[in-house]
Design a protein around this nucleic acid. Structure first.
Lengths: 245, 245
DNA sequence: GTTGACTATCACGTTACGTTATACTTTACA
DNA sequence: TGTAAAGTATAACGTAACGTGATAGTCAAC
């Protein structure tokens, strides 16, 4: 049989057969023109190879096993078994750690990140002039310096996304925090934060309070509209309470 | 801090830090002479890197996560979790297959291997002449052709090993199968077989019977001494029965 | 004889560094 | 202050198991 036939028969690639030939793992006969011809015996050997491969043995070990009948097969299987068990323990630990991380990640977003998320970068924002007046150049420049650690594209993408979200919120800021419009708008914000980090509802509510308590955040947010920070806090509180049950 | 300090602090190699620098994952400041100097911030980033590495993330993904706050970290963790779970299933299957293999491997040594193990190769054996007389040249040549598929070194190593074992057995073949000498000698043979394959006691007993029933094996074995095949069968039977309780 | 399907041999790319090899810098000690 | 020891830098090959072209020769059919 020629390469392609064999490859399709056992479900591997032609390249793989070439490779096994290259490393001397499975060397078929060849025609005068150099075509590889696999015998029945070759196919049997291939089955063995694939069997040990399924068990996770490296090709070198398989080579030893295949062409050395005095090889300690039993021992090799036991060693391999141990290795696999250790691997499984490692995986379990990794999975457990991830689970913990997802759980305890509530509130994991640092203040420095929050500053970015809250939209401290007003360099592309029409309100920057106003910001400079309110905060003084120093504060704005320091903030921009921080935000500038992000790549241009990221800044743009991030800026556009929550600029849009904040505009939507500002647009409904005179409605009732209970209103559907407000609740829908704040849900967008909650979902966005949850693609970046992992916010529990309570953490979200706390975040809203911070928007009001922290001068920097409040002023920053209020640039999208007077009283927006307070409004957001209220909407976020309602959203939280509503969705907790 | 300089490389070595950092490396020892967090328990990684200097080369690893170099690597992270090369791929742009963690780029510290440098002195005029080109020495890398890691800041506190660099160390924090490094902790993050190592954290995600522990979770099995590839460095490329870590790079994305680290220097792109808009990266979907939560989603990444969930994807990673799924991958790890799939990996674990794969491992479990591999382990289960190995267990099955070890179990069902009883009697897994093929006849062709048995021929080798039983010592069909008498090309280096003083009895070859005799063998040719008994079996005729054809049979001996065919047998040798088979055995010659092994590498020279393997042949030698294998040949020496069980040549020795068979000689020892032949030396005690007039003792009682119950005798300590016979039992010790057969234990060596059992242990040797179990480094190559996996023999249960019952399989071992059956093997002994085959030595007698199969003309080829019997004649072959008896070349080490008249009646050795029968003696071995008896010793193997006793050994099996004794060790089963 | 020409085309299409198949085959062959390079040879680079991938992952995360380990491991020399060569050369320069800084630190410590006499 | 001179020198050796310790530390650091870059460069580049090696690893595992192929995937993925690129280029070229072969075989069977029309």
């Amino acid at each position: 049989m020629k390469v392609k036939e064999v490859a399709e028969l056992v479900g591997i690639s032609v390249r793989t057969l070439h490779h096994y030939d290259d490393i001397g793992l499975l060397k078929p006969e060849t025609t005068d023109s150099g075509y590889r011809i696999y015998s029945e015996k070759n196919l049997e050997t291939l089955q063995q190879i694939l069997f040990f491969k399924k068990l996770g043995f490296p090709l070198k070990k398989i080579k030893d096993i295949i062409n050395s009948p005095s090889f300690d097969k039993k021992g090799a299987l036991e060693v391999q078994r141990k290795m696999l068990l250790e691997e499984r323990v490692r995986l379990d630990n990794m999975i457990a750690t991830i689970d913990k991380t997802i759980q305890h990640a509530k509130g994991v977003i640092h203040m420095s990140d929050q500053e970015k998320f809250a939209g401290f970068d007003f360099s592309k924002n029409p309100y920057e002039q106003e910001a400079r007046e309110r905060w003084g150049d120093e504060a704005v420049d320091a903030s921009n310096a921080k935000i500038n650690q992000l790549s241009k594209d990221e800044q743009k993408a991030m800026g556009e996304e929550f600029d849009q979200i904040y505009r939507n919120l500002a647009a409904v800021r005179h409605k009732d925090p209970d209103s559907d419009e407000a609740q829908v708008a704040i849900k967008v914000w909650y979902d966005y934060l949850n693609t970046i980090g992992d916010y529990s509802l309570d953490a979200f509510k706390g975040l809203g309070q911070m928007y009001v308590d922290d001068e920097r955040f409040r002023q920053n947010i209020d640039q999208y509209g007077d009283g927006l920070a307070v409004f957001m806090r209220d909407v976020m509180a309602v959203y939280t309470d509503r969705n907790k049950m």
